[in-house]
């Protein structure tokens, strides 16, 4: 052994720190909304456009609120997991279709009348769900993204767990992986439903 081996010791300590760091998630910084009541909204439903839904309609139930859009590539990744989830678990999953037409980027919004946007959004969202399966109890349509702003959506997909009294208990940004579902969402749902 010579004194130069101390360098290896220092490096080993650094590696240990990085290895521990890998298992932590710095983005777990609690969203300011976690622990706060879910922001109110009233939006039309996809299945029955004349009916609307508000978070207070879900009072008394633990529910999941999942932000999606047909233009969102990562949503395809999590979709089969949601479909599977909806078959197995008796927790209502509500979809928030986020900027279905505006978010797509393929349309010139300044030339599109509002009713045409609406028609197109419903058409696209319905087609997507019939193609990929519909895990949602129901989906509400956030055409202009206002509700998304209230919920602090910064990347689709995002998922919120909301408890019986209407308080957001968890927020997950990005596609749900089987791991996130098993390790974080399911235990939380079990606890909240106790």
């Amino acid at each position: 052994m010579n004194r130069y081996y101390w360098i290896l010791g220092g490096f080993a300590a650094l590696v240990a720190l990085l290895a521990v760091g890998l298992n932590l998630n710095p983005r777990d910084v609690p969203s300011p909304l976690v622990g706060k009541p879910a922001p109110a909204f009233t939006l039309s439903q996809l299945a029955e456009p004349d009916k609307s839904l508000s978070p207070k309609d879900m009072q008394g139930k633990v529910w999941l609120f999942n932000v999606w859009a047909s233009w969102c590539v990562s949503c395809r990744q999590e979709h089969p997991i949601l479909v599977e989830f909806s078959k197995k678990v008796d927790v209502p999953l509500i979809g928030l279709n986020y900027k279905e037409v505006r978010g797509d980027g393929g349309f010139d919004m300044s030339k599109m009348p509002a009713d045409e946007e609406k028609k197109l959004a419903w058409q696209r969202a319905n087609r997507w769900l019939s193609e990929h399966g519909n895990p949602y109890k129901l989906t509400v349509m956030d055409l202009d993204g206002r509700v998304g702003i209230d919920y602090g959506v910064y990347g689709v997909p995002e998922t919120y767990v909301i408890d019986k009294s209407g308080v957001i208990r968890m927020k997950h940004t990005g596609p749900i992986t089987p791991e996130v579902l098993a390790k974080r969402i399911m235990p939380l749902l079990a606890e909240l439903n106790k």
């Binding site: 010579n2 130069y4 081996y5 360098i7 290896l8 490096f11 590696v15």
Partner: peptide, 12 residues
């Protein structure tokens, strides 16, 4: 790790 080990072995 391997380059530091090589260094530690050869440096003296």
């Amino acid at each position: 790790g391997s380059s530091l080990a090589l260094f530690a072995a050869r440096a003296p």
